[in-house]
Computed example of a mutant assay.
Amino acid sequence: MNELFEQHIKHFPHMIKYCFFEVRYHYKQYLIVLGALLLLLLITFGQLLIRDTIDVQRTTSFFKLVGFFAYFWIFFALFHSEKTVRKQGSLYNRLSVPYYVGTSAQVFLMMIIFLIAMTITGLVSTSMTEVIEINHLGFFYYLVMTYVLLVPLASIIGVLGKYFYKTRYIVFGALIFLILLVPILYVPNNMYAVWVNILRLNPLFYVINGFQQTMILGSAASTNLPYHILFYFEIALIYLLWVNVNRAHKTELFDDN
């Protein structure tokens, strides 16, 4: 595991260069994603004004919107990571660069788009209601935790996608189903506690709900210590899985299709 951390830090400059490469040749793709997020924000803002909603309704709408933006980051980062390694794996081999340089770049680029959307969302939401409270330190914490979570997940998906053709369909289906398991279509406070506790076993629920709480409720996101410990334990398991997948990839235990 230490080797992966060291290699990731060592190749971080390559990852930044790859980000510039991606933006240069696929800038339309990222502009479309950013435009879609801002359009959704505009629609949410417009319908709240037209309906002349009260603070509770506005807070609930922005709560769900923040969750959807975080989901958008996760969806595109993981889905494009599979395509990145599958289509550009030979390029990494020629440059002697690990495959996770590309997957990390996808996570990082989508994080930048997410940050832009969230900054504008914060400005709009606080201008519409005084109930919303933003915890900037808490937001940064969940930003780091999401990056730490997505890098190994994206790398695992990328490697599997290179060797198994159906990986892309499984990942797409799982990400679509994910929207039902995270607090986007519903507010956790309106559900039975037992169901919320079950949903919290999902580490993606942790980061999405964390963004929602830090952007809407302020400091309330840092009060559940067992929930944080559970997430750290899951992160450790995911990184152990990544170590094994990376070792198998290096020793070519997979059969190339």
Score class of each variant (00 low, 15 high):
195 W>K: 02
138 G>Q: 10
22 E>N: 11
152 P>V: 02
110 M>R: 04
17 K>H: 11
158 G>W: 13
197 N>I: 04
195 W>S: 06
220 A>V: 11
234 E>P: 00
20 F>S: 01
110 M>N: 14
79 F>H: 09
72 F>T: 10
226 P>F: 09
249 H>W: 12
88 Q>S: 13
227 Y>Q: 04
249 H>N: 14
60 T>P: 01
137 L>Y: 13
51 R>C: 00
7 Q>V: 03
96 S>L: 06
47 Q>E: 13
161 G>H: 10
48 L>C: 06
143 L>K: 02
26 H>Q: 11
225 L>V: 15
69 F>N: 06
240 L>T: 09
253 L>K: 12
96 S>V: 09
55 D>K: 05
13 P>W: 09
56 V>T: 08
93 N>Y: 05
240 L>H: 09
224 N>V: 07
2 N>H: 10
213 Q>T: 11
36 A>L: 08
233 F>Q: 05
119 T>M: 08
6 E>N: 10
177 F>W: 08
239 Y>I: 04
115 L>M: 04
148 V>K: 07
144 V>L: 15
108 F>S: 04
205 F>I: 02
76 F>P: 00
180 L>N: 10
26 H>Y: 12
127 S>Y: 15
256 D>N: 11
84 T>Q: 13
253 L>E: 15
167 T>I: 08
253 L>N: 12
240 L>F: 14
73 W>V: 01
148 V>H: 07
143 L>W: 08
62 F>T: 09
214 T>R: 09
257 N>Y: 13
2 N>W: 14
133 E>K: 14
206 Y>Q: 08
107 V>A: 02
214 T>D: 15
25 Y>S: 02
185 L>S: 15
98 P>L: 01
182 V>T: 04
98 P>M: 02
110 M>S: 05
213 Q>D: 12
139 F>I: 09
245 V>W: 15
110 M>V: 00
164 F>K: 07
157 I>L: 15
66 V>Q: 07
186 Y>E: 04
244 N>R: 10
142 Y>G: 09
59 T>A: 12
138 G>H: 12
247 R>F: 10
87 K>I: 03
173 G>W: 04
60 T>F: 13
158 G>F: 10
103 T>M: 03
155 S>G: 03
213 Q>A: 11
217 L>Q: 05
18 Y>C: 00
52 D>N: 14
107 V>E: 03
203 P>D: 06
57 Q>E: 14
67 G>A: 09
229 I>R: 00
228 H>M: 07
1 M>F: 08
182 V>R: 11
80 H>R: 06
232 Y>T: 00
202 N>Q: 03
26 H>V: 00
215 M>E: 01
59 T>W: 01
178 L>N: 04
209 N>T: 05
248 A>Y: 15
77 A>G: 04
226 P>K: 06
248 A>V: 03
127 S>I: 07
44 T>R: 12
81 S>P: 04
203 P>R: 01
61 S>A: 15
220 A>Q: 13
179 I>M: 15
187 V>M: 04
189 N>L: 03
17 K>Y: 13
79 F>G: 01
83 K>H: 14
213 Q>V: 07
204 L>S: 08
176 I>A: 14
194 V>T: 14
3 E>C: 00
195 W>L: 06
63 F>D: 14
124 V>L: 07
38 L>W: 07
55 D>E: 12
19 C>N: 02
26 H>W: 06
87 K>H: 11
25 Y>P: 00
111 M>V: 03
162 K>M: 06
182 V>C: 12
72 F>Q: 09
10 K>Q: 11
231 F>V: 02
11 H>N: 05
46 G>D: 02
38 L>R: 06
